[in-house]
Write a protein that binds this DNA or RNA. Structure first.
Length: 826
RNA sequence: UGUCCUGUAGCUCAGUUGGUUAGAGCGCUACACUGAUAAUGUAGAGGUCCGCAGUUCAAAUCUGCGCAGGACAACCA
């Protein structure tokens, strides 16, 4: 069973953002400028359009797919199967609602899962304004030791690449075991005397060695060559509990005791000052450590990525300039404005541009924020051991991807954030009371109908909007009568056991769940096709790009493990990428991408396929060079075509009879027996190679056989047998031998060159090669000794030609006698 | 920063469990052939097997440390 994706999941994923772009709207406008119905209809159309392109490519390149019955994730039946899986997870306590810091895309208005963040191209190098901010220490019993012969006020230095999070600062985190020092010096902007606390090992990053212990009196207040002096060291834990003045007091944190120094094990001294500015709302680590110490939170940014009304002069400004509509971004980002403000306040120690990799949303291409959100999670961490154990039973090609890349990923598996705040996708089938005390997960339309009936009876709904649907009727017409997408499904209000109304959680689920649910949902399992599902699950193998390691490979594996306690596939071929001929990744931006349709037009599908398969193993990156395709055409296909033409020419002249009885082996010449031995060896080699998911080895073996053995040696030396006038066993043997070779070559090359091989086979046999049985190697026809002897003869022939060449002996003049030393056989 | 892959002739790639002088195709150069079917043959030039160190009688191959390219991951304040 081959899993393939007839509708192309990534296209479905992207269709919504593509549609938004085409319609010239943003997510904000949905429900206002355009109704959700119209919007979803546009999305549906976009899917269809991509489907056509995909189908066209599939046919032309000869993918072996059932295009008549693609699975389509927006069909009601597909969604019902997904709901069934979700219900199963829910019943096993593997689905829960949680409040965590998550990657969030304000531009798309939705949270992102870890594997969405793991798509290629999400992390990009960006230049941000970074600030070393100065937090003023309150003098009290705990901090007294810092004030001993202090020089000006005492500050703790903390570095951030996201100055917009500084107003939401609630704590400072230090490493309890790290060494810290006090440094007396001057503020580089206000030139006031001040004492600063930072990690000892970070001194050299911020203070020039040659100015250490320089005269304070001689400082010219120009910010250059600032003298400094170390005023004593101590360990991080001595700082814990010290309180400081809020840096930017726009609003007060809630739910805790903020503005103190706390200890965290994640603090390092690789960057910054060894002190982490902690804004619990905008960092996963920050939230965790703040909870541990009861710090509370402050979230001064809204879901659109703008500062909230409390932020005074900054209220309403986007925290990243990228969030403004094109052309409307202010000259100074809030990061810059805040930095200037801090400089003026005397609370900035260093402001500079800092280049680092920052994650971007794959829908909008804009930077993401880390933001506190309510979300539904799949508790994959609970099944980590099974995920790992089952993975070990999968045959990965190449193996290292499974043990290395995928294995490491599973070792560090996180709970899967399923929630998406969007409109076009599969709705989460969970209904909740307003207080969240009662909830219900729906696993089928039948169950939904029953619950609707109860709700109507209880009076929370007037009527059943899905009245046209008949439970247990699996016909398409029945399923086509209803739509369980948003907004329709949002109109359903159910009733809780205690009689309260329950509304649907408004989230959609991660589209990757859709694709991972494919083995079940394509069959509408378990509502229909139980046998077909059982026959095809788990899949024998799947093939996809290695970049899908954390995408499709993972979601298939996770869902199968959690819901079936099984693998979803027994083997994986993870393809490498197609690079351009100098080894650069192809991209539209660089203009080095090859148009697949053009390439197919120019060379034909078989030459392209043969080139790609024979040139490099599927998992190795392929340096795509069109000259390689012409070489394949010249060498392999021309040799095969000419060999067939030679056969056909004389077979037609002589009226070769396919049905005639086979000439006995003893009646065939030694060379007949040799090529048939080579042929059966080839069958065995190809069988082993294909069986081990090594198509490259198989294709190369077939190519060598055709070019060297069959065309260049057998046909060349046996031409006279085909030419001669009289019929007879010898001539028949030649025809039958060559015919058999061509027949088998057609069969062996069918997986790689499906069109050429089919034509060849039809011409030879009158039927399709793709309906023929895979050839079996006949061990008794293999004569290893004969193959070795012939190899020797080939070598001697070449040597003889070489000698003739040296002696300038004409090739057409016969040689009466030649001899070779015995060592030539080695 | 981590994980994984790759590195052999100008190019694309082979190279088994370590074992004589490291191979093929293409390209290049030269010569011959046109009695090989729309397919020719022979020869030649071209290599620090990415580098260094180690194991070994023996390393392209095994080990370690690097370098370069690529993919993927990462809360990096």
């Amino acid at each position: 069973m081959l899993i393939a994706r007839p509708d192309g999941i990534p296209m479905v994923c992207r269709s919504s953002s593509v549609v938004e772009k085409e319609l010239g709207i943003t997510k904000e406008d949905i429900g206002k400028k355009i109704s959700i119905e119209d919007y979803n209809a546009a999305c549906k159309k976009a899917v269809m359009r991509y489907t056509d392109v995909w189908n066209d490519m599939t046919r032309r390149i000869g993918f072996w797919l059932d295009l008549e019955k693609p699975y389509v994730t927006y069909h009601t039946k597909y969604i019902e199967s997904v709901w069934h899986l979700l219900k199963k997870l829910y019943d096993d306590d593997l689905l829960y609602k949680g409040y965590t810091i998550q990657p969030y895309s304000p531009a798309a208005g939705t949270g992102l899962s870890s594997h969405e963040l793991n798509q290629p191209g999400t992390y990009k190098p960006v230049k941000d304004t970074s600030v070393v901010a100065m937090f003023k220490v309150n003098k009290d019993h705990a901090s007294e030791f810092l004030f001993k012969d202090a020089f000006g006020d005492v500050f703790i230095l903390a570095w951030t690449t996201t100055p917009w999070t500084l107003p939401s600062n609630c704590a400072l985190t230090i490493g309890p075991k790290l060494e810290y020092v006090r440094v007396k010096s001057f503020n580089p902007y206000t030139h006031e005397p001040q004492t600063m606390v930072l990690a000892k090992s970070r001194l050299s990053a911020y203070f020039n060695e040659k100015n250490e212990n320089a005269s304070f009196d001689e400082y010219k207040k120009d910010g250059k060559n600032i003298p400094w002096k170390v005023g004593g060291g101590f360990y991080g834990h001595q700082l814990e509990g010290i309180r400081y003045e809020q840096l930017l007091p726009y609003a007060q944190p809630e739910g805790g005791d903020a503005f103190k120094v706390i200890g965290g094990d994640f603090v390092t001294t690789e960057d910054g000052t060894g002190v982490v500015h902690t804004a619990p709302s905008f960092g996963a680590d920050d939230m965790r450590v703040a909870r541990q110490h009861g710090i509370g939170t402050l979230t001064l940014v809204d879901l659109q990525g703008r500062f909230t009304h409390e932020m005074g002069e900054y209220a309403g400004k986007y925290v990243k300039n990228e969030y403004y509509p094109t052309g409307q971004a202010p000259e100074k980002s809030v990061d810059v404005e805040l930095s200037i403000k801090l400089k003026e306040m005397g609370r900035a120690f260093k402001v500079e541009k800092y280049e680092h990799n920052y994650p971007h949303c794959w829908r909008t291409d804009k930077p993401i924020l880390y933001y506190p959100l309510d979300s539904w999670f799949v508790r994959t961490t609970a099944k980590k051991d099974r995920l790992i154990a089952l993975n070990k039973t999968i045959n990965w090609k190449p193996e290292s991807t499974g043990t290395g890349r995928f294995g490491n990923w599973l070792e560090n598996v996180q709970d899967w954030n399923l929630s998406r705040s969007r409109y076009w996708g599969i709705p989460l089938p969970i209904w909740r009371t307003e207080d969240g005390d009662e909830e219900l997960c729906i696993g089928s339309l039948k169950q939904l109908k029953e619950e609707i009936a109860r709700a109507v009876k209880a009076g929370v709904m007037k009527s059943d909007p899905y009245a046209s649907f008949t439970p247990d009727d699996m016909s398409e017409t029945n399923y086509d009568t209803i739509d369980i997408h948003r907004p329709y499904v949002d109109n359903i209000v159910l009733v809780s056991p205690s009689g309260k109304p329950m509304k649907r959680e408004t989230d959609l689920i991660d589209v990757w769940f859709d694709s991972g649910a494919m083995p079940y949902a394509q069959w509408h399992y378990p509502f229909e096709n139980k046998a077909a599902f059982k026959d095809s699950f788990p899949a024998s193998f799947i093939a996809e790009g290695v970049d899908q390691t954390r995408g499709w490979f993972y979601t298939l594996h996770a869902i199968a493990t959690l819901t079936q306690d099984s693998v979803a596939y027994k083997a994986v071929v993870s393809n490498g990428l197609v690079l351009d001929k100098v080894g650069q990744k192809m991209s539209k931006r660089l203009g080095n991408a090859v148009d697949p349709f053009k390439t197919l037009d120019e060379f034909g599908a078989d030459a392209v396929r043969w080139y790609m398969i024979s040139n490099a193993s599927p998992w190795d990156n392929l340096k795509f060079d069109a000259e390689g395709i012409t070489e394949v055409q010249r060498k392999f296909f021309r040799a095969l075509f000419n060999t067939y033409n030679f056969f056909a020419l004389y077979a037609n002249i002589d009226g070769f009879d396919l049905q005639a009885p086979q000439v006995a082996e003893s009646e065939r010449t030694e060379m007949d027996r040799w090529i048939l031995s080579r042929l059966n060896s080839l069958i065995a080699a190809c069988d082993a190679a294909f069986g081990d998911y090594e198509p490259t080895i198989a294709a190369r073996a077939v190519q060598d056989f055709v070019v060297e053995d069959l065309s260049n040696w057998y046909v060349r030396l046996n031409r006279r047998r085909f030419w001669k006038g009289e019929q007879g066993n010898d001539k028949n043997a030649a025809f039958q031998t060559l015919h058999r070779c061509l027949e088998v070559v057609a069969m062996l090359s069918a997986p790689v060159a499906p069109f050429f091989s089919d034509r060849l086979f039809r011409d030879l046999m009158g039927s399709s090669v793709h309906l023929s049985s895979w050839p079996k190697s006949n061990a008794s026809a293999i004569d290893v000794e004969l193959e070795q002897r012939t190899a020797l003869a080939q070598k001697l022939t070449s040597l003889a030609l070489s000698i003739r060449k040296k002696d300038s002996t004409r090739r057409s003049s016969p040689t009466s006698r030649s001899s070779a030393p015995e060592w030539a056989s080695r």
